[in-house]
């Protein structure tokens, strides 16, 4: 069983996304620990990329601030190594194909295993291109997380059947960022997912309020929140971890 499954054994999973190095790696570490204390079940650690094409303005800004602060992939591996002294919940990386490829895919994925990363989310690697990284992920026991979008339609079954770790269901068209309402027929998507796989699924993109988290938790096995957390970091900087802890607690409570 994948370590990621543990995230789904404590009721509905609250999954937090943070961009590493925004505003600095020390704050990222404190934010991760605050999220864990607040009840987060899995953390997605974003490795900054210069041109994050799947991100809305909030996370784009975080990527830019982190890179301007000089954060590198090696330093992010160091951060995870340090976090693993006391953080035991599943951790996954979310980044872009070129960050992995340019580092040397095997070296990158071997390092993931070494420092204790359980999975990898690459939003610019669809089903058709997963062979680029999948054999190495299998070799080193790192789950390559698949995404399903509102436009996936006839592709949902194909993707779900081969999914590993958990399935990331993208709630809406467009890029990451808070939305007032989510109009996609997610129940229909989840139904097809359930028919084709046993692994859990979580919904992300656009979720920021406890009410939305509750609604998504009712539909799926978990909710993923990124931009709302990154917004707290943008607003409070080094003082953000306390706010993040309180926010995660509120969101997790709303998910029943």
């Amino acid at each position: 069983m994948s370590n990621i499954q543990k995230a789904f054994q404590n009721g509905k999973a609250f999954i937090a996304f943070l961009t590493c190095g925004d505003p600095d790696l020390g704050t990222t570490a404190a934010a991760v620990r605050a999220a864990v204390a607040g009840g987060a079940d899995l953390i997605e650690l974003g490795i900054p990329f210069s041109d994050p094409t799947a991100e809305g303005p909030v996370i784009q800004g975080a990527n830019l601030r982190a890179l301007q602060g000089g954060v590198t992939t090696d330093q992010v591996f160091g951060l995870v190594w340090e976090l693993r002294r006391d953080v035991s919940i599943p951790l996954v990386f979310m980044t872009y194909a070129n960050v992995v490829f340019s580092y040397g895919s095997e070296r990158f994925i071997a390092n993931c295993r070494e420092v204790g990363i359980d999975g990898l989310i690459l939003p610019d690697v669809p089903y058709e291109e997963k062979e680029e990284f999948l054999p190495l992920c299998r070799q080193y026991g790192v789950d390559l997380i698949s995404l399903i979008a509102p436009t996936s339609q006839n592709r949902i079954a194909m993707i779900a059947r081969e999914a590993e770790g958990f399935l990331y269901i993208v709630s809406s068209l467009g890029v990451t960022g808070a939305r007032k309402e989510i109009t996609t027929d997610l129940a229909s998507i989840v139904k097809v997912v359930r028919q084709n796989t046993q692994i859990p699924c979580a919904i992300g993109f656009g979720i920021s309020t406890p009410q939305q988290a509750g609604e998504m938790a009712a539909l799926a096995d978990g909710a993923i929140v990124g931009s709302a957390l990154v917004q707290l970091l943008e607003q409070y900087g080094k003082d953000a971890p306390a706010h993040i802890g309180a926010y995660v607690r509120e969101m997790k409570a709303a998910m029943g």
Binding site: P126, Y127, E128, S146, P150, T151, S152
Partner: peptide, 12 residues
């Protein structure tokens, strides 16, 4: 070459 794009665009 290839198709390194978000799932959202694959059917397009």
């Amino acid at each position: 070459g290839g198709q390194y794009i978000p799932e959202t665009l694959m059917n397009a």
